[in-house]
């Protein structure tokens, strides 16, 4: 068999294999990062919100302040 054919098939399979593997591994790591980071902010704003509603946190900058560049 011609080496050009072998090279053609090898390049196609290797490239697609590496790309597919990179997609799967990037997705796994993104999910992991999201999983570890997701719990504290998801819990904390609710807790803070309760504290703010209790009146303990008056004067604390909120989301609007951050967006306004405060």
């Amino acid at each position: 068999m011609s080496p050009y054919i072998e090279a053609g098939y090898a390049v196609v399979l290797a490239t697609l294999g590496v790309y597919a593997a990179s997609l799967a591994s990037r997705e796994r790591s993104a999910r992991r990062r999201l999983g570890t980071k997701a719990s504290p902010p998801a819990a904390r704003p609710a807790q803070l919100e309760r504290q703010l509603l209790d009146g303990a946190g008056d004067g604390a900058p909120g989301a609007d302040d951050l967006e306004a560049g405060a």
Binding site: E27, R31, A42, P45, L48, L52, G57, G59, A60, L66
Partner: peptide, 28 residues
């Protein structure tokens, strides 16, 4: 993957807001 990146950015923003609020509370 792109959707997860957006979700991650949103989470990061929520995290930053929560920290900023906590900082404000400490100062007060």
């Amino acid at each position: 993957l792109a959707s997860l990146a957006v979700q991650q950015e949103d989470e990061g923003l929520a995290h930053a807001i929560a920290e900023r609020r906590a900082e404000g509370r400490v100062l007060v």
